[in-house]
Design a protein around this nucleic acid. Structure first.
Lengths: 204, 204
DNA sequence: ACCTGAACACCGTTCAAGT
DNA sequence: ACCTGAACACCGTTCAAGT
């Protein structure tokens, strides 16, 4: 074997294969990944720096599907909503991926692009820099938290023998469904956007 | 050596030592943990089922500090606020712990107690079961997402060369500080609680 | 430049042996 | 009941060797 005339690997192929493994198993190991690509483990290191870099590449691949409205036509609140929903959906398409992200600083270009779009929309709406950072942080935290909620194993909370009726009744209401997670996200987002709007308009 | 007359270990001691390691290093391994406890790795298995159980124990230890107002004296909104803030602070006290939680279903009693308190407060305020679940999910998602934001490495986002001025200006505004994360959380929480209140009172 | 196989240090867990 | 040390299967990464 040794070097083939046309490379068997690329960082894109590696990230895609890793994504597939994570979607299926919730995690991936280098040997698994190598096997899925019909290659020896050490080959991977010709294309990526290590496991952490593969995770960043997966983030990029997942985030590349976020839709950013280019001509911010409508109201800024509607624009923010579109971005946030698309952002949430991109996470939700690969729910099991999210836990892998949570310990890394975002350096991926595609993801930074999303923050950028949020920042510009907010600037256009009259948010000063500090208010911008606050708003982005609130939206980002809520998107991530909601995606994690959607990601969690079928039963997020395993109610206890001595949980209150108030809690168990509520739990029974929403069994199953990624749909529920998405609906709940939408409601929370609406609340947040309305609240943000009330705060800017209050100041001028 | 062999069996000492008084045990050297307990699940509490193990969880506490693991928590210390995570606070310092952001992770822990069984050999590290054994060394910190001056014990051999295999000894741990006399007290805990494995690494996953140690993580659940750490969650319990972190959550045991959440303050639940027993006599819900004031307005329900204020009660919810107290619970949520205390919940957030408990996570924030051990920020590096959070990534370890994100792939496990909550089974820990202490944590379920928090959801229970939220559910009861909401029930008292007139939220029906479905609305209760929605509200709890929104609050929980926001707490978790905000705690993750606080947890992330010093610079959550590493701005790019070609990030917009709108974004980089905003970033410069809030450099450093867990304080900032806490303030932002408080603002977001206020928005969410106000929005929830508007929704119940609208229905009656 | 890009693949392989051998090698290294490390991980989580099990289990027989000891008291 | 509770600790130890040896053992196992597995992990991520490096590196000389091949083309």
């Amino acid at each position: 074997m040794a070097r083939p005339s046309t490379p068997k690997l690329s960082s894109e192929l590696i990230a895609a294969a890793a994504l597939k493994l994570v979607d299926k198993n919730g995690e991936f190991t280098i040997p698994q990944l190598a096997k899925a690509l019909s290659v020896s483990a050490s080959s991977l290191y010709n294309h990526v720096g290590g496991k952490d870099e593969i995770i960043e590449l997966m983030r990029g691949q997942a985030m590349s599907r976020v839709q950013l409205p280019e001509a911010p036509g409508g109201h800024w609140r509607e624009t923010l909503r579109l971005i946030a929903v698309s952002y949430f959906e991109s996470y939700s398409r690969h729910p099991r991926l999210i836990p892998l992200f949570t310990s890394h600083t975002v350096r991926d270009r595609t993801t930074l692009r999303v923050y950028d779009a949020l920042a510009q929309t907010l600037a256009g709406a009259g948010f000063d820099p500090a208010a911008r950072l606050t708003a982005i942080t609130i939206i980002d935290s809520f998107v991530l938290g909601s995606a994690l909620d959607a990601a969690a194993p079928d039963e997020v909370w395993a109610a206890d023998v001595d949980s209150s009726a108030s809690f168990t009744e509520a739990l029974e209401e929403g069994l199953g469904s990624a749909e529920r997670a998405e609906q709940t996200f939408g409601q929370g987002l609406d609340i947040i956007l309305a609240g943000l709007e009330a705060r800017v308009s209050a100041r001028g």
